[in-house]
Design a protein around this nucleic acid. Structure first.
Length: 145
DNA sequence: GCCAACGTTGGC
DNA sequence: GCCAACGTTGGC
């Protein structure tokens, strides 16, 4: 099991919209960056991740799970772009803000802090657990389902 | 709204 | 294969 973080501007695709898709989930389309695409290729069904609101909110707001492995991105005809499908699993009761992440020394290695432009990124297990705790979640529930 | 950081494109 | 120009992201 690996852990990830997905960024989305809520104005484009919000956590509320993601939740509306229910158990079936939705394609994480629109990634046009090789690094981000390559991370999606590494994902396995069942991998958990954070849903992060960029720009407006700047906070981890939800837990998601991969429900379909990488496949061609249906939002383009270009076969080089791929994406996974993810579904909403649960809310983060107290969204964990970027400021909080930056203020926590244990999270100083996070890609979110060091490469703010990467829209799909890996999260270490320890980092994932800590952010769950900061958000008011039981890590066991958030990490295993 | 600005701009720094980063990625991509295309001329040479 | 280099690098200048350009476009985009996302924090501030």
């Amino acid at each position: 099991m690996r852990y990830w973080l997905y960024k989305s501007e809520p104005i484009t695709w919000s956590w509320e919209q993601q939740k509306d898709k229910g158990e079936a989930g939705e394609e994480w389309t629109g990634v046009r960056n090789y690094q981000a695409r390559n991370f999606m290729r590494e994902m396995a069904i069942g991998d958990r991740g954070f849903f992060y609101h960029s720009n407006d909110g700047k906070a981890v707001v939800g837990i998601v799970e991969v429900v379909k492995a990488a496949h061609p991105d249906s939002s383009t005809d270009d076969p080089k772009w791929e994406c996974v499908d993810i579904k909403a699993v649960m809310d983060v009761p107290t969204p964990v803000t970027l400021d909080q992440v930056k203020a926590e020394p244990k999270l100083s290695e996070m890609v979110l802090v060091n490469n703010s432009r990467l829209s799909v990124q890996p999260v270490k297990e320890d980092e994932f657990r800590l952010i769950c705790e900061m958000g008011g979640l039981d890590p066991k529930a958030a990490m295993k389902g």
